[in-house]
Computed example of a mutant assay.
Amino acid sequence: MKTFILFALVVCVYQPVSAGYGFAGKSLIFSTKTDNSYVRLYPSRWPSLSAFTLCLRAASEESRGYGLFSYATPRTYNELLIWSSNEELCLYLGGTIVKFSLPKMNALLRHICVTWESEEGLVTFWVNGERTVQKAGKKGGTVLGGGSIILGQEQDSVGGAFDIRQSFVGEITDVNMWNHVLPACKIKAVSQGYYSAEGNIIDWAKIHFTVKGKVKIKNSNDCSSQNIFPQPVG
């Protein structure tokens, strides 16, 4: 009897994990609050960074706070975190938090980029190609390499310690990251699909990943400039 009970418990708590390569033309759908559903990304390299551009598209109708992108290292669990809360987008860089007052997330997919560079510590958000004010962030710092990237949850330890109250519910797609600050015109072009968004740290079309729990991978059904204006052949 004890053996049977133990087996039944294991079956109940087990969450299947699947692995794959590349999300070209795909979106991640997080349909409900959980503390065990997420996608983990595995870049081929993530050195320590003195600058970056991080872009994604997302939509959520949740009115509470949640993480859009969570990167944790043994040094700090909020090594790099994009946090959405009511009418704010925040960038966490370790113990530094830079807040921006922006329209509340809703059911419409919006393109979000954030840039940071260490020399002056400037942080800037871009929403649908429009720039916010520039704010002072982590001057002279670095983003430590070799950590854990999670979509759908906010890490309170490396790769885990998730809180259902901070889980993401909605859609995320087109996550790309570069190890430098993209020029303004390229960020605008990326937001409109006119510039090939192939990050040299995270490339959404080629990234290795694992999926756990109740996450659906669906066609994004987006119309890009490449579909409207196909490249000539020959």
Rank of each mutant, 00 (worst) to 15 (best):
I228V: 01
H208K: 15
N200G: 07
N200P: 02
G213Y: 06
S220P: 01
I172T: 01
K214A: 11
I202N: 04
N179F: 03
P183K: 11
N227L: 05
I207C: 09
M177L: 09
K218T: 05
G193W: 09
C185I: 14
A197G: 04
Q231I: 00
I228L: 01
A205I: 04
N176Q: 12
D222V: 02
I187Y: 07
V175M: 06
M177V: 10
M177T: 08
T173P: 03
K188P: 01
I187W: 06
N219V: 05
C223R: 06
K214T: 11
E198N: 15
G234W: 01
H180P: 07
A184W: 10
I202F: 07
V181S: 13
V181H: 12
P230Q: 00
I217K: 10
F229M: 03
S224L: 04
F229L: 02
A197T: 05
C223Y: 00
K218C: 02
V215Y: 08
K206F: 09
W204C: 10
Q231G: 00
I202K: 06
I172E: 07
Q192T: 15
G193K: 09
G199D: 08
M177P: 03
W178I: 05
Y195N: 12
N221W: 03
Y194T: 08
K206T: 09
K188T: 08
V190Y: 10
Y194G: 12
Y195M: 07
N179A: 13
A189K: 10
W178Q: 05
K212L: 02
I207E: 06
G234R: 00
N219C: 03
W178Y: 08
K188F: 11
S196Q: 15
P183D: 14
S224F: 07
L182V: 09
